[in-house]
Every structure is written in structure tokens, then in C-alpha cells.
């Protein structure tokens, strides 16, 4: 498998993205904005459509639209208060409308290649871009670990204790938008939206502390991304879809195992009592 140049590149990029997605996606899940990954992935498509139609660099425009969309989601989230998810749907709808209309003007074949993206067809430039993203993400996650944890626990408390929550939020938004835009190009918009949420969701089912959940989510993410590539190689399936499938299966299996464990624990307790 690894004597093929394209497989080595796919593996390296998958590993890097598998680390990036949960590190940046985790906080999004905690903020109850899980579907914003989906909204951003579609915003990146809208950006690509704008880029293709206007002749500007699609990648750059898609990063900009992603950042703008996430900022809008942030604003709407405060406006709608309890119903924060509405903001996500508003942006998602807008992005779908915009990309749908504009894609009619762009060359369809070109647009499709961005829609699905393929980890099997990456260039060396894309490898470097993803490597840069991983580096920045790791620095951010390590440097702001305590502050981010504090913010997620209680934004107000964190603010009172002197953490510049607004700036931290903005920085995270920027990175998250960047990850979705770059990820969409590399593995396809559809896969990105599941990979930013599912690993953290699976890890949360384990009901352990923040740090444990973080590492567990990295494990789930690596399993899905790398497992997806290996499985798709032997089964000749589409790699992105296979990764998403493994991520969902891992979540369901975790759910079932957890339910069984609680069931038997209760039974053991009952028989003892």
C-alpha cells in the first residue's frame, strides 16, 4: 500500500487533519454549535463558487467566507440566546443558496471536484498547507489549554477572572474556519462536517474529564481517518465516505458498549443487594 506515492501523501495528510479536527472541533461541540461545521463547510463551497466565478483564488475566498460565516454564527448565537442552533441554520441556508446559484455560472466539473475533494489527489503544496495548519493548531491548543478550558466551563467566570474571552473566541473561530476551508479542499465538504463533531461526540460518551475526552477524541479521529483510508484502499470505496462511516460506527459501538456496561453493572449490583 505504501509503495504508492499517492497513498503515502493521503496517509500523512489524513493523520495531520485527524489531529486538527477534534482539537478545533471539540470546543465547537461544547458550545453547542455542532452543526456549525456543516454550515461552514457549505460556506466554504459558496466561497469556492465565488472564487471560480470571479476568477479569484477559490481557496482564499473560501477561507474568508468561512471566517465571516463563523463570525455571523457567533453574533446570531447571542441574538437567539437559548436557540443558538438557529443561527447555524440561517448561515447554512444562506451558504447553500449562494453556492447553488453561483455554481450555475462556474464550470460544473471544477465545482464538483471541490464539493467532494479527494484525499487521493493531493499535491505537495496541499501537504505543506495542512502541515502549517497542524502546527498553528497545536501551538494554539497547548498555549491556550487552560484558558480555553476555563472559557468552556463558564464564559462569564473566565471573563471576570481576566481572560480576554472575546479574543480567544475570535482566534479559535479563525482557526476553526481555516481548518474547515482547508479540510474541505482536501477531503471534501461533506466529510469535514462529520469529522469535526463525531470524534468529540464519541469521546464525550466515555464520560471522563476534559483532558481524557480530548485525547480520546484524537484517538477516535485517527481511527476514522486512517481506518477510512486503509479500508477504502482494500474495498475500493470512496475514502471520505468510508472515514465518515467509520466515525459514525465508532460512535454507535461506543454507545452500545456503554449501555451494556451500565446494564451489567446494575445487574451485578442488584444481585449483590
Amino acid at each position: 500500500m505504501f509503495h504508492y506515492e499517492f497513498m503515502i501523501i493521503a496517509f500523512v495528510v489524513a493523520t495531520m487533519l485527524a489531529l486538527v479536527f477534534p482539537l478545533l472541533g471539540g470546543p465547537v461541540v461544547y458550545k453547542k454549535l455542532s452543526s456549525s461545521g456543516d454550515a461552514l463547510a457549505h460556506s466554504s463551497l459558496a466561497g469556492i463558487a465565488i472564487g471560480l466565478v470571479s476568477g479569484l483564488n477559490p481557496m482564499l475566498i473560501s477561507i474568508i467566507t468561512c471566517v465571516v460565516s463563523f463570525l455571523i454564527i457567533g453574533v446570531l448565537r447571542r441574538k437567539f440566546g437559548k436557540h443558538a442552533e438557529i443561527g447555524v441554520v440561517v448561515v447554512l441556508s444562506g451558504a447553500i443558496a449562494l453556492s447553488g446559484i453561483l455554481s450555475g455560472y462556474a464550470k460544473a466539473a471544477n465545482f464538483d471536484s471541490y464539493l467532494f475533494g479527494s484525499i487521493l489527489l493531493l499535491s505537495y503544496e496541499e501537504v505543506y498547507v495542512v502541515a502549517g495548519l497542524l502546527l498553528v493548531t497545536l501551538l494554539f491548543s497547548i498555549f491556550f489549554y487552560q484558558r480555553q478550558l476555563h472559557c468552556l466551563y463558564s464564559e462569564e467566570e473566565a471573563h471576570i477572572s481576566g481572560i480576554k474571552t472575546g479574543w480567544l473566541d475570535l482566534l479559535h473561530s479563525l482557526l476553526f474556519a481555516l481548518a474547515v476551508a482547508i479540510g474541505s479542499k482536501a477531503v471534501g465538504a461533506l466529510v469535514v462536517s462529520s469529522m469535526v463533531v463525531l470524534p468529540t461526540a464519541s469521546a464525550l460518551l466515555l464520560r471522563k474529564g476534559y483532558c481524557f475526552t480530548l485525547f480520546a477524541s484524537l484517538g477516535y479521529s485517527l481511527l476514522a481517518m486512517l481506518g477510512g483510508i486503509v479500508a477504502s484502499y482494500y474495498l475500493d470505496w470512496k475514502p471520505g465516505a468510508t472515514s465518515a462511516g467509520i466515525a459514525v460506527s465508532a460512535l454507535l459501538i461506543t454507545l452500545i458498549v456503554r449501555a451494556l456496561v451500565t446494564f451489567f453493572k446494575k445487574k451485578a449490583l442488584a444481585s449483590r443487594g
Partner: peptide, 12 residues
Amino acid sequence: PHDFELVPSAVR
């Protein structure tokens, strides 16, 4: 052909 997406075996 417009709908075709490369699967691993094709790239191989």
C-alpha cells in the same frame, strides 16, 4: 464521465 470520481483502484 462528468460524474466520475476517482476511487482508490483507479488512482492505483
